[in-house]
Design a binder for these strands. Structure first.
Lengths: 361, 361
DNA sequence: GGCATAGATGAATCACAAT
DNA sequence: CATTGTGATTCATCTATGC
């Protein structure tokens, strides 16, 4: 709808994130990654339910005020995020047990539709020094679509190939951000207390966006989301209220080179490739009319007609319809159900023949 | 203070759990384990790729009209649990992403003090059959004290000794309840759709109770909590509304013999040998996207994509698939076939990089 | 009996384009 | 917007069957 022209792409917007969000056009970003602040620091940044400013040294704060204020803040920025998110977009929100339950409830109450909760398992967590609890070795990421009916993007094949050709699970083992990746000041101290590892953002961005799409981070910090988005050939918008963090993020982004298009493009999933109708195989002579097809166990046999229909006894129709009918199943993928006979008598599934018609072969 | 005399110890109480809770004396149990309905909201049937039907949870007890109804129910039973819990007691509440955020917020709002969120990583979860999400491979347990100032019990040494003398982390790898452990009816069907593994309760009860202390389960089901409590020499109180489940739990409990503490401790945590997928090297930057790989004799060269696929001419796929394709071999171990180039121009097999990520190195 | 292969199954919010 | 037809999609583990 042309709203893309108003988007401040590939930039870091300074100032209050809710104010910045309100200036972005609706339904304009494909993905949001949010690592909101929590813990006591919040007390200095937030307002009470009655909108009064909170004094950071106010000892009168009780637990209810604390949680209610946090909830109010959470719902405010999530509401704006939902407005800015495209209908087919998804959002990632991460937190620890201190705040993640409040984040999840806010998401559900605002109409987001949770797709997964993902556990970032830290391979090198901080030990529990006092020995009074389990080592807090993970954080939680909630992945949600804008609504229940959203047709969101999930790059299933890319995730599967990342995981040695097995489905990617909801528990991810990734080390903390340390070593050279950790941004440090001239005195060697870390620039940001909770800098996230690029590997985490790599997986997040690769899972739910395509090259050229827009990733928004309302709590950019020192810019990990933007850096990984840029490297992967995505566009980014980062919001950050702390000038020091924003400076560090911009300096970091200037050093990032996008990967070449061919490398950044994940292999397309089967469902994203052009469809080849069965009729094409018949026309091209790979399955001439009159060919007999069998199921894997040779329990059923059918014959191909000139119009690419199958006939099996009194049943006739598409490869899918006849496959379903003979099995008395509600549906059937004829491509993987039916086989042709090789000269040596062995069977070959007709789905393999489609590959021979695919472009580039 | 003597309230123990009123406790219906080592018994299964039938009927509505809230009514039963209200009849228990205050501050009387040392630990609570609650596995409440998840409110899964399944809408349609789900079939596997082989067209078989997935036997999902469609029981009436898991259905709630809306989230507000679920929240009211949650707060009602949690309020009674808090009344019944001793001041030094702790509570475990488990759920999935459908309900666990509501549970966590209710706990916090009612004054419980969250100590950990623990992730039960399933070693054998059900796959995602349609390829539309990450495999839902875990559930979450929230462990909380009655309040912020509670002096709760955490058996640090027991947990540590169970975990190969390292601190027990917040992510636990435990298989589903299957095989002989799964209770079945005379027709072989499962008695309860969500029976939990005894290994999970073993760790829970051992972590936060001493022998002789009282464990309460307000949603007993077929009695896993009570069975493990009895075996570990703890007292139990189980609440269950469904007479069939209660019958099964009582029959099960009759077969349990208490173990000695030393025997119980000897059950070690499942040790894990982490599998390092090639994708981990890519997203962690050890083999950045765009890297060129060679075989040992430099006969073939391939480029690494962002999704950890290799591309070599028209061939694309995993390191194993592409290795096999270029050699026209039926299979190939990509880890030992492909090499990266060092700065000095010599080659290094990528399997060595994987070894660097393995623990203990 | 032993071994190989096939079948079953687990807390699941599980399509989408063309008409 | 509703309907229809194509066709994409599974991992670890335990049990049953067959040779």
């Amino acid at each position: 709808m042309g709203t893309g022209l108003d988007l401040p792409l590939d930039s870091v917007l300074r100032g209050d994130c809710i104010e910045s969000l309100k200036r972005l056009p609706p339904a304009s970003v494909h993905a949001i990654f949010a690592d909101p602040p929590y813990n006591l620091q919040l007390k200095t940044e937030l307002r009470r339910p009655d909108d009064s400013l909170v004094d950071g040294v106010d000892d009168a704060w009780d637990r209810f005020d604390d949680l209610a204020t946090y909830d109010r803040f959470t719902r405010e920025w999530l509401t704006e995020c939902r407005r800015v998110l495209r209908r087919d977009g998804t959002i990632w929100v991460m937190g620890s047990y201190h705040n993640v339950f409040r984040l999840g409830v806010a998401l559900q109450d605002l109409g987001f539709w949770i797709l997964n909760d993902v556990v970032w398992r830290k391979s090198n967590p901080m030990p529990n020094f006092r020995g009074r609890r389990f080592t807090n070795a993970h954080e939680t990421l909630i992945w949600a679509a804008r609504g229940e009916e959203s047709r969101y993007r999930f790059n299933y094949a890319a995730m599967k190939s990342m995981n040695d050709d097995k489905q990617m699970r909801s528990d991810w083992l990734i080390p903390l951000c340390t070593g050279n990746e950790r941004l440090r000041g001239p005195d060697g101290t870390k620039l940001h207390p909770t800098q996230k590892p690029e590997a985490l953002l790599h997986r997040v961005i690769l899972a739910c966006t395509a090259p050229g799409e827009v990733v928004l981070d309302p709590f950019l910090g020192t810019g990990t989301t933007a850096a990984v988005a840029k490297r992967l050939g995505r566009r980014f918008i980062g919001l950050e209220r702390d000038p020091g963090y924003a400076d560090a993020a911009e300096a970091r982004l200037a050093t990032i080179e996008p990967l070449s298009e061919s490398v950044a493009l994940a292999l397309p999933a089967k469902r994203e490739q052009p469809r080849i109708p069965f009729g094409a195989l018949v026309e091209r002579g790979l399955v001439p009319p009159g060919t007999k097809l069998w199921d894997r166990h040779r329990r059923w046999q059918a014959e191909v007609g000139v119009d690419a229909t199958l006939r099996c006894g009194r049943v006739a129709g598409s490869i899918h319809q006849v496959g379903a009918a003979v099995q008395e199943a509600p549906s059937c993928n004829g491509w993987t159900f039916w086989h042709i006979e090789r000269r040596d008598g062995t069977l070959r599934v007709i789905d393999e023949l489609r590959a021979e018609l695919a472009p580039g072969s």
